[in-house]
């Protein structure tokens, strides 16, 4: 094998695309030829750098959203006023049956709410959902602005109720996306906040039972004349409150005192 022949095969050698015969011949030439050794190393390094360059390029978030809302691609989502509904189908897949059942029972049979075993409450289910969001087990759309997230979620329930639209920018968090749980035709809207410090999920759903989370601590704010329920699972904390016929649960790994202070500072008496 001469240098011209070897050079033609070096690219394929770098890509491990040579037959055994070709590889043996090329390798033995390269071993003894300084010039071809240089080509091999240069191409190898080039390939590595090109791959690295590629890995830094990802599709813009708004392109993904555009594709997801293109009726030619995802007809269910774009045409129905429910908007994102179809996208959240995978959520059901990752739900553990007991967890899904908790949502189902609590929303369909609210009268049993207070009697339901503590570990299966809707509030604790919210804690679990938040952890799955953090772990990336539940996909959600990343959206441009807080208003967009709010509008999407609002549309997903045919404008029957709006998600709690907290502006958490004073504490360095901003709404980056949202998702909808649909269980037995009841919908729970989730706004995901990220930024400085631990992420936060805000759950909003229609108040159908008037109950309180089991094992929760009741905190009464005399100034605003409002009640807050606090509850935890490990390091994940939740604060629940009622606002104008809606239930809102904030969930985050930030310390309970901070989370409660946040809920109180944004709460308006209903």
């Amino acid at each position: 094998m001469n240098c011209i022949e070897a050079e033609m095969l070096i690219a394929a050698m770098v890509d491990s695309e040579l037959s055994d015969l070709e590889r043996d011949a090329t390798e033995s030439h390269v071993k003894n030829c300084l010039r071809c050794q240089y080509i091999y190393k240069a191409e190898q390094e080039l390939k590595r750098q090109v791959r690295l360059t590629g890995s830094r390029i990802t599709a813009p978030a708004d392109l993904k959203e555009k594709i997801l809302s293109d009726p030619r691609i995802f007809p269910g989502m774009a045409e129905s006023p429910r908007g994102w509904k179809g996208l959240f189908r995978p959520v059901r897949v990752v739900f553990r049956p007991a967890f899904a059942l908790a949502f189902l029972v609590l929303l369909v049979l609210p009268t049993f709410y207070l009697m339901w075993p503590t570990a299966q409450s809707v509030s604790l289910a919210a804690l679990e959902t938040h952890e799955q969001i953090l772990a990336g087990d539940i996909p959600f759309i990343r959206s441009g602005t807080q208003d967009e997230v709010r509008e999407r979620l609002y549309r997903s329930v045919e404008k029957r109720f709006a998600p709690m639209g907290y502006d958490l920018s004073p504490v360095g968090l901003r709404a980056v996306g949202g998702l909808v749980h649909e269980v037995a035709s009841q919908r729970i809207l989730v706004t995901v906040y990220e930024g400085r410090g631990p992420s936060l999920s805000c759950f909003t759903f229609l108040d159908t039972d008037g109950g309180a989370p089991p094992n929760a601590h009741l905190f009464f704010d005399p100034e605003k004349k409002m009640s807050f329920y606090t509850f935890s699972n490990g390091r994940t904390n939740g604060v629940m409150q009622r606002v104008a016929g809606r239930v809102c649960i904030l969930v985050s790994k930030m310390p309970m005192q901070e989370l409660l202070a946040l809920a109180r500072s944004f709460a308006q008496p209903s």
Partner: peptide, 27 residues
């Protein structure tokens, strides 16, 4: 594909000369 990659990398290398180098022991 083989021959275009071979030549393509050569063109690419030409544009990147001076920005990246490799170690060749003998040299």
């Amino acid at each position: 594909i083989r021959s275009r990659l071979s030549r393509g990398r050569r063109y690419l290398h030409k544009h990147l000369r001076g920005y990246m180098g490799v170690e060749v022991q003998e040299r």
